[in-house]
Computed example of a mutant assay.
Amino acid sequence: MGRALAIHLAKMGCHLALSDINPEELTQTQEMLVDYDIKTTITVLDVADKEAVYEWANSVMADHNKVNFIFNNAGVALYSTVEGSSISELEWVMDINFWGVVYGTKAFLPLIKNSVNQSQADGAVENGHIINISSLFGLTAQPSQSAYNASKFAVRGFTESLRQELNIQCCGVSATCIHPGGIKTNIANSARGNDSISELGMGTGDKAIRSFNKFLKFDADDAAWVILQAAANDQSRCLIGNDAKVIDAVQRIFPSNYGTVLYRATKIARRLKTKR
């Protein structure tokens, strides 16, 4: 999804500073942008490394002279029961999914504010925006996804509080929290997990990954465009995909027992599929 965002932004004429923990993927993305009349810089980055994120932010400012947007998009998944997950596994998810968002926001927010202030001093009208990627699982909790749920609920609360603060400050900077449903990305294939989910009647190993991938149906390119539209319209939050919209509606109607409703609906759907 990050690559799709980069391509859309390049088409709009935006200069880009890209980061990824995977150098091969990062180089491939850069190569896809060579035909656009923009400046692109790349940095191999682990967003869980606070010092590295701050260093990257400073280098972005040095290379591009200003920053208007930050997309905190990195994410990983873990399938495990609460009892079956180790502390190190929980820390791995939280360090990337939550602290990576915090570091990116904290490192870039002052730079974005300064860029907006400088544009106003120069007589231009520019705004700044922070786009943080939560998840459908930042709205509803799911069995086997406690670590992911915790990280994405945290991103939601962090971003919603940030947005309110920025609105009060009237500083020309805002924030949007994104809640994608199942997006066709590589997150399932790179997920970690253990056999504890067999206690929940779920498949393990390759079967778990295949089941996870079946949930990922929404095209990443389309998702990127929805995200950019949400930022352009200064939406407080953005749901992506019918699955996100339907499950969010279920949570709103049944706030205390949506888990039971969704579980029963899933069982009925499986029975109907079996009969076919």
Rank of each mutant, 00 (worst) to 15 (best):
G181K: 04
A124V: 09
N117R: 14
A121S: 12
L9E: 13
A188G: 08
K39Y: 01
A6V: 03
A107W: 08
S190F: 07
L9K: 11
Q30E: 10
I96K: 06
A4L: 00
G241T: 14
T185W: 00
Q169K: 15
A244Q: 10
N242W: 09
Y148G: 05
L18S: 08
Q145T: 09
K273Q: 13
N233Q: 14
L139E: 11
L5F: 05
F153D: 06
K214P: 06
V76F: 12
D248P: 04
G182M: 04
I133D: 06
Y103F: 15
V60D: 03
R163L: 06
L5R: 03
T43F: 13
T204G: 03
R192G: 13
M202S: 03
G205S: 14
T260I: 14
Q229A: 02
D221L: 11
V44Q: 15
A121I: 12
T140Y: 03
L9M: 14
V47L: 07
G123D: 11
F137Q: 10
V226D: 15
G157E: 00
I87E: 14
T27I: 08
N117G: 01
E25M: 12
W99A: 00
L109W: 11
L18R: 07
I130G: 00
T27H: 06
T27K: 10
H129Q: 12
K207T: 14
N257Q: 10
V246R: 13
I21T: 07
G259K: 14
A224Q: 07
L162I: 02
S119L: 10
Q164A: 13
D49K: 10
G123F: 12
L26E: 11
I183Q: 00
G241A: 06
L16G: 02
F108I: 00
V82R: 01
S161E: 05
K152E: 06
D37Q: 15
L5T: 09
N97I: 06
A6E: 05
K217W: 09
R270P: 00
V173G: 03
Q164I: 03
R252M: 13
S146W: 01
R156M: 10
I42G: 02
Y263T: 12
G138L: 13
S174P: 01
I227E: 02
D35Q: 13
K50N: 02
Q30N: 13
M12K: 15
K275T: 00
A62M: 12
H179L: 12
K39C: 11
N65R: 11
V250N: 06
D46S: 14
A230T: 03
T43A: 09
T40W: 08
D37P: 05
V226G: 01
M94N: 11
C238Q: 15
L162Q: 10
T176C: 01
I197M: 05
E91H: 12
C14A: 15
I130W: 02
N97V: 13
I240T: 10
F69N: 08
A223T: 03
A147K: 00
Y103T: 00
L262P: 11
T43E: 14
D95T: 07
A232I: 04
R271I: 04
R192Y: 02
L5S: 08
V67E: 07
R156C: 04
G172R: 04
Y258L: 03
T41M: 04
N114Q: 15
N97T: 01
Y54K: 05
Q28P: 00
V102Q: 06
N149Y: 05
D195H: 10
K106T: 11
Y148Q: 08
S86P: 03
S256E: 13
G123N: 10
F218H: 14
L26S: 09
F158H: 13
G157H: 08
K39P: 00
